[in-house]
Amino acid sequence: MLRKIESKNMGSSNLGWLRSKFHFSFAEYYNPDNINFGVLRVINDDLIQSNTGFDTHPHRDMEIVSYVIDGELTHGDSMGNKNTITRGHVQYMSAGTGVYHSEHNLGEDTARLLQIWIYPDKKGYEPNYGDYRFNWKDRENKWLHMVSSKDGDAPIKINQDVNIYSLELRKGEEISFPVKEGRQAYLVQIEGNSLINEIELNERDGMEIVEEDILIKGKETSHILILEMSKED
């Protein structure tokens, strides 16, 4: 089963310093039929103006992954961490029993990132933070496995059975991705234009994939993120 979600039909917000597309219910956008996709609770496609950002605020019992598309993102938290990442890099935080953090764009240009929230497999983990600076070439025409469960083999490990992959597929190239029985995936067309099993996706569109292998064809050079997980009961 494939279901395309067009960007124009997603929730949106414009606070001036922050412009967002919400793949799932968030903030002032509430749709009772679009709260989550399995353990995936939030994907926000955020544009953050220079020298602005999210001031210190709390989180609890959530696995939070930030994937930078453009510009830079600086993280600070109550555990004493402070780091800046740029295009193609990832920050990860397990909020667990509770943590305060901030995220700011201290660069000169507008930053774009995907903010991803995933339900943990249980509550009460000790808070944890990490980041990883992936080589961009490692996702050119191939899947870069960035995030997995603690039992997986990705560099970043979270407290949930979720795998996150990124890809830059050149125009005219093809690549497959298996979504096996009992599994599902959510795809974000971050940049470019592609065909997913002959269904066209444009920049910022999404797609739900349930127990169906896909073939991706690049109509333009395409930057794609896939989150693969256990199928929702």
Rank of each mutant, 00 (worst) to 15 (best):
R19P: 00
S20E: 12
K21E: 00
K21L: 13
F26D: 08
N31P: 07
N31W: 02
N31I: 01
N31H: 04
D33M: 13
N34M: 14
I35G: 00
I35L: 15
N36I: 03
R41E: 08
V42M: 07
V42D: 01
V42S: 03
I43Y: 00
N44H: 09
D45S: 05
D45M: 08
Q49T: 05
Q49H: 11
N51P: 04
G53K: 01
G53A: 05
F54N: 04
F54E: 08
H57A: 03
P58M: 09
P58I: 06
P58Q: 13
D61F: 12
D61I: 03
I64L: 11
S66F: 06
V68F: 07
G71F: 09
E72K: 11
T74G: 10
H75E: 07
D77S: 09
D77E: 07
S78E: 08
M79P: 02
N81I: 03
K82G: 04
N83Q: 13
T86F: 14
R87L: 03
G88N: 06
G88L: 06
G88P: 00
V90M: 10
V90F: 14
Q91W: 10
Q91F: 10
M93D: 02
V99G: 00
Y100S: 06
Y100A: 02
H101Y: 14
S102C: 05
S102T: 10
E103R: 04
L106E: 15
E108W: 05
E108H: 12
D109M: 09
T110H: 05
R112V: 03
L113E: 04
W117N: 05
I118P: 01
I118Q: 04
D121A: 02
D121T: 01
D121S: 11
K122N: 06
K122S: 11
E126M: 10
E126V: 12
P127M: 08
P127R: 04
N128D: 07
G130C: 05
G130E: 12
D131T: 09
Y132G: 08
R133E: 13
F134P: 02
W136I: 11
R139P: 02
R139K: 15
E140Y: 11
N141K: 03
N141I: 02
K142C: 13
K142R: 15
W143E: 07
W143G: 05
S148C: 10
S149C: 07
S149D: 12
D151Q: 15
D153H: 14
A154Q: 10
A154W: 13
A154T: 06
A154C: 05
